[in-house]
Structures are given as C-alpha cells and as structure tokens.
Design a protein around this nucleic acid. Structure first.
Lengths: 244, 244
DNA sequence: CACTCTATCTCGGCT
DNA sequence: AGCCGAGGTAGAGTG
C-alpha cells in the first residue's frame, strides 16, 4: 500500500488473496485477480466456463468482469449494483456475486490465484464526446443548405402518430419535408421508419402536395437504396461534424 | 516470470513498463497497466478523457480496454484486430492503438504507471450456454402441444420473401401457422416482423384460409399487445428451458 | 469481404 | 421502478 492506493500479491495463498479482496472492497478499490478459475452463471441465461487462466475485475460499484485472452467483451459478467461475497472452501477461493431484478448469480472458483491487485481508480467525470447524432442535427440546423438550397427547418423532434421526427421543415417551394438522421451507414430499417413518418404526416397534414422524406446519413446499404427508390424517398449523404 | 506465465512490476519506470509491454505482447500475454493516464479516441466518434487512475487491458487478439472504477463497459476501447505501438515520449508512456475499416485510433498517455502485469490467459473454448432462443425452439419441437393441442411443426427456418420463419407448421385443422420466437419480452418490432411473414405466406401459399401468426415469448409490451390485436395475430407465453 | 441480425446486449431517457 | 429505444453497439452467421 502507498499513496497511490496500490496493493498487490504474487502467488498469494487463498487466505492472502481473500484478505486483499475484502480490504480492497471496503476501501472502494478495483480488484483484479489473475489465476486459474472456473465460472458459473445463472440468471437471464445460464452458462458454465471450464477452468482456465482468467483475469477477474471487480469494481466498487458492484460490476464484475471475467476476461479471457480474447474478445473485447468479458466472457462472463454482472452489471453494476451487485453484491460480492468471497470465501475459501474446498481448497478454492470462491467469489460469489448476486443481484436481483432480475435474479442472477455469478460464481467464480479459483483453484489458484497467480496475482492479485487492489487499485484505487478514479471516475470518468470528464469524458467528452463528439460525432453523435446530436452533432449531425446541429450541423444541419447551423446550415440547412447542406440538405439542399432553400431548405428551412421548422421543428426538431416534431411529434407524429408514428413517433418523433428528427427534423421537420419545408423546401424552397414550401413543401413539407421530413428528415430522418442517422450518424452512420444505414440499412432498410431506417428507410421503413422514414416511410412511416411520411405516410403519417401525409395523412395528418392532408395538404394537396406529397410530403417529402429525406434520409440523412453518411451512406446507405444497397438494399436500403433500393427501398428508398421504391418508396419515392430521397437520400442526402452527410456525416456528423467531428470537433477536436 | 514463472511456469504460469506471470510477469509483474510495481512502480516501474516508463522504460521498464515499456519492456514488459513489448515482451508481453510478443509472448501473447494479456497486459494490464494500472496508472494515471489520459485517453484520446478518434474514429467513429471522438472523445477525450482527462487524466485519472485507470486500468488498461491489452489482449493478444488486439483488443484494448480502458476501465475506470465504475461501469461494466470500458470508458474507452478498441475491438480485436488492432495493432498497438508503445514508446516513451515527453516523460509519458504512450500506448497508441489503431485499426482500419473503419479508421480509428486510441491514444493512452501514462504520466505514471503504478503497476504492470503480463499474464498468459487461456481462451474460453468451453463456454456452454442454455436459455437461448435455440433452447426455446427445442422446447417447442420436443413438445409442440406447448403452443396448442394439435399443433404440428413442419419446418424450421423456412425461407420466405420476408426472410426465414422460425417455425412453420399446421394446426389441428391443417391451417398454416407461423411461429416467431423470442427468448425475452418483446416490443412492437417483433409483431411487425411476424406480420410480414404472415402477409408474405398468405400470398405465397394462396390457400383459401388465412395463415395464423403466433408470437412466442415470455411476455409482450403493452404496445405490442395492441398491435397484435390490430393485426389479428396471436400470442403464446413461453420461456426458454433452463437446463442446469 | 461486406452485410445482416441477434444479444445474459448495455445504457440512458422517459412514462 | 419499469418500459422503450439507441449504440463508437459487439459478435456471429451468411451470401
């Protein structure tokens, strides 16, 4: 232990690893256990993982992750809000985590702990992100001509019977226009969604002229392209603004 | 280093941590770095994370994760298949990971490494799971009467113009029946999907009688319930079998 | 390789 | 608190 809140053991006995786990949890540290263990999960689904060398990370908010040597996703996990209990039994260090709503349980049985770390990590209070769908909306509202000359936004999140439309406006000839925004390449589902908005607004507005529907995204899939044409909808290629 | 493939340093110099990182990567180990760092991401979106105490995990398949003290999800990450480069610059240990399609980049700058671990983890070859949609299908095929007396499955994954139908069969009166299976509570989208199948099969089969559509899931949302009634579709409550 | 679909999705916003 | 929809979705399966 020292000023940075670090506590480690190499090849600890189960008792020493247990002590590190418990004092670390109390302190609010992130616990990392490297060792050979098997894992059982029971809850929304059920799974069993045969023994192997894993990395188990246990966070003070109650989240627990079991990582193997591959994949970005943990092979087993429980979300934040779980309670952990550890004890030594049958020559194993057993970590048992549970939560309710829904009831689920993760059992991690270490036959051997190779290394144990308790570390005081800090939160991510200052993560800032750009390049989202909100950025795409801002980009259009800042300069509506990126859609087409004369386009004029009238409302965002305009409510319809089919849900809220991203941007509602009019074109140079005062025809109603519905924009559906997607921050990345889109498939046929987005086209269907746009089509529902157009159909609903056609009915709700009952102006003589057809409501125009424009899908705004960086690109579309081949099938989405086909569907757009079949439905008489339009497409404008536009990406979210990336601020640095 | 020892027979379990473990290599650790507490409070290493940047050079020592760099050496551990590079030899560990070559060896195919999982590298864990505990220390104070800032993180920048640029790719599908863009983000900056101010300096703080983090856990950085770097896997031999190219995945890299940055964990804070909270959340199940890493605060920053890159998926498997990335290439990592590490070097010391401006009194920082800099880990720079990149990939293409899409182009993205994760920059992790350690001003201080508190602890470093290289560990030979093993894969999850033997994860077995139950309680999936496949289990639900098996449960129905084992005993079709759980749907209704007289129901008789004729095909699974039967192809239609709207995609593959989960289970296709006939009822006691030889009417065509389409089952759409979901392992958990479903919303209106599943009803729409089922409706497309029924509509398409009505046309493809052009039998005199209406094709029946049954949604099979543990439960449905309120709006899905409404939509089912509006479309003349049916619902059977059934959960996947959990084997232990 | 590109595209599509599912998920023990996770996460956040809203009713 | 539960429900619903989006995601830097991830990961698997398929043409």
């Amino acid at each position: 232990m020292n000023e940075t809140g670090l506590h480690t053991f190499s090849h600890p006995s189960h008792e020493k690893a247990l002590a590190l786990f418990e004092t670390g949890c109390e302190r609010g540290a992130v616990i990392s256990l490297f060792g050979r263990c098997r894992v059982e999960y029971d809850g929304r689904a059920a799974s069993t993982l045969a023994a192997g060398n894993r990395l188990v990370v246990c966070k003070p908010d109650g989240a627990i992750l079991v990582h193997t040597d591959e994949g970005q996703k943990p092979v087993n996990w429980l979300p934040p809000g779980c309670t952990h209990h550890a004890h030594v039994e049958s020559d194993e260090l057993r970590i048992e985590s549970q939560r309710s709503t829904p009831d689920e349980e993760l059992l991690i049985y270490f036959e051997r702990v190779d290394h144990a770390v308790a570390y005081d990590a800090t939160s991510a209070s200052e993560l800032s992100m750009t390049g989202t769908e909100a950025d795409l909306r801002e980009r259009i509202l800042d300069d509506p001509s990126v859609i087409e000359p004369g386009f004029e936004p009238r409302a965002t999140e305009r409510e319809t019977a089919a849900g809220a439309v991203d941007i509602y406006g009019v074109d140079a000839d005062e025809n109603a226009v519905v924009l559906e925004l997607k921050r990345r390449r889109v498939g046929p589902d987005a086209v269907s969604q746009l089509n529902r908005y157009v159909a609903v607004l056609d009915r709700e507005l009952h102006t003589g002229t057809q409501v125009r529907g424009i899908l705004v995204a960086p690109s579309v899939t081949y099938r989405a392209q086909n569907l757009l044409e079949k439905r008489g909808l339009e497409f404008v290629s536009l990406s979210p603004r990336f601020e640095s």
